[in-house]
């Protein structure tokens, strides 16, 4: 069965995700409206500014539809800002910032600091034979993990890649490197 994977394209690094998915031979589509959301089987929520996306989710009329799809079990992969939007609790966010509570994590916005503290490094991912090169940009930091969440990679003892059911999140940016193994992993989540 062929799936159509949406990339939330309200703001941020959506084009890079779309590029990686297309290179994997998947049909990818940008999602900016409720109609476009209704037309996809799974969704990637990219990096960008979570406050900006949170506002645009409201003004574009997508927030409630997306919340409904997530509770119905639509597979979703959130990177950086996408992870913030999917977490149950957000520290240091704006008080009016809404999130979906789709994965049982507490994350601290900009937990690794400002841009001058942004970094890249190799991480080891469960099931991968070789390290994955991870780029962290003003990244959110996981500060608490719920019992149902499987941690797939950590950096300095802090989880950076996690999975709970149909919800996969990374605090870094797999779309910025040529390595497509995490997107391929998400396709397996979609297939399962």
């Amino acid at each position: 069965m062929s799936v159509r994977v949406g990339v939330l394209a309200l703001q941020g690094a959506f084009a890079a995700h779309e590029h990686t998915l297309t290179a994997l031979g998947v049909e990818a589509a940008q999602v900016r409206t409720p109609a476009e959301l209704a037309d996809v089987d799974a969704l990637v929520m990219p990096g960008g500014e979570s406050t900006t996306m949170s506002r645009l989710l409201e003004t574009s009329g997508i927030f409630d539809d997306l919340k409904g799809r997530l509770s119905e079990g639509m597979p979703v992969f959130g990177t950086c800002a996408g992870m913030i939007l999917l977490a149950t609790d957000v520290l240091d966010g704006r008080t009016d910032q809404r999130n979906f509570g789709a994965i049982d994590l507490t994350v601290q916005r900009n937990g690794y600091g400002r841009q001058v503290d942004s970094f890249e490094t190799d991480i080891e991912v469960d099931g991968f034979g070789t390290p994955f090169h991870a780029v962290f940009i003003r990244a959110p930091k996981v500060v608490a993990v719920g019992t149902g969440v499987k941690v797939l990679a950590s950096h300095d003892g802090v989880p950076v890649l996690a999975l709970q059911g149909h919800v996969m999140v990374a605090s870094f940016h797999p779309e910025l490197t040529a390595d497509d193994r995490l997107h391929a992993m998400f396709l397996k989540v979609i297939g399962s």
């Binding site: 703001q11 084009a15 950086c80 001058v116 503290d117 970094f119 490094t121 190799d122 390290p131 940009i137």
Partner: peptide
């Protein structure tokens, strides 16, 4: 994990610009 941590690289610096798109 053991890899070195690199700050201020071209990829990290261009990365923030990617996040500002749109």
């Amino acid at each position: 994990v053991k890899g070195p941590v690199v700050k201020g690289s071209v990829q990290v610096k261009r990365g923030l610009a990617e996040m500002l798109k749109g």
